[in-house]
Amino acid sequence: MSAIEIKHLTYTYSKKTPFEHTALKDVSFVVEEGETFGIIGETGSGKSTLIQHLNALIKMKDGEGTILGKSLKDKKQLRQIRFDVGMVFQYPEYQLFADTVEQDVAFGPKNMGLQKVEIERRVRRAIELVGLDFEKFAKRSPFELSGGEKRRVAIAGVIAMEPKILVLDEPTAGLDPQGREDILALVKKLKEEVCPTIIIVTHNMDEIAKEADHIIALFKGEIIYNGTPLEVFSHEDFKEKTRLEYPTATYIANEIRKQGVDIKQVVTPEELVSELARIKEGKNV
């Protein structure tokens, strides 16, 4: 069973008004369980509309879709789907509202109608998973924390619902380099321990090239490319068709290739370095 299957999804805002705007056009893709799946596209390409379909925040009108086998069109399943798909929006720290970290993280599990003991277990586990000391943070106000800590608490609030699929929209936006690295490491940890299927929405090509097993690239609501990072970033017309940049390593390889160097396609700096090292070695022999 695939984690997510979307078929022929089309979505139009303000239908039949002068403000009609088609955000998604005949979008189809499959996310396998255990995959880290990247969704890339410039601002306004439909990424945000797409992910809001995945947990039925936007009701599916045209098209078909299943989440872990449950239909997005079956009204009785929507509640369960919403719990199965955890959603970490951009700047999630702005969702914090409760008096203490503990209460805030418990909001999701409470809405699920869980038993008190179970809620407590999940809250403690989630706070610890995101790398915060439970004893130290549980009773503090979320508004007193640093930016990075707030973001972790917000992520814990989603993790406490123990979703099977986690969607993250620009999880590293606005953070310093260390903060970005920490959050990506956290995502890896969450993948191993809580939700095996991860979807990351981003316009940071370097990050997604490193993290994702599979990518779809959107432009004006349509899927332009669908494949592994290597496949997607190997397209010569990638830049024109998506209005995005290549990952830095790919860009460098492309430019060097233009200079007559026979270099294989790469997407991460590590691949670039090892490929260049191989060529250099060949020359020295």
Binding site: L57, R82, F89, P92, Y94, Q95, F107, N111, V158
Partner: peptide, 16 residues
Amino acid sequence: EETQKIVATQKARGAS
């Protein structure tokens, strides 16, 4: 716009 975003976020956390 902000209200909309917050509503979506809390709905995603199971709020109704």
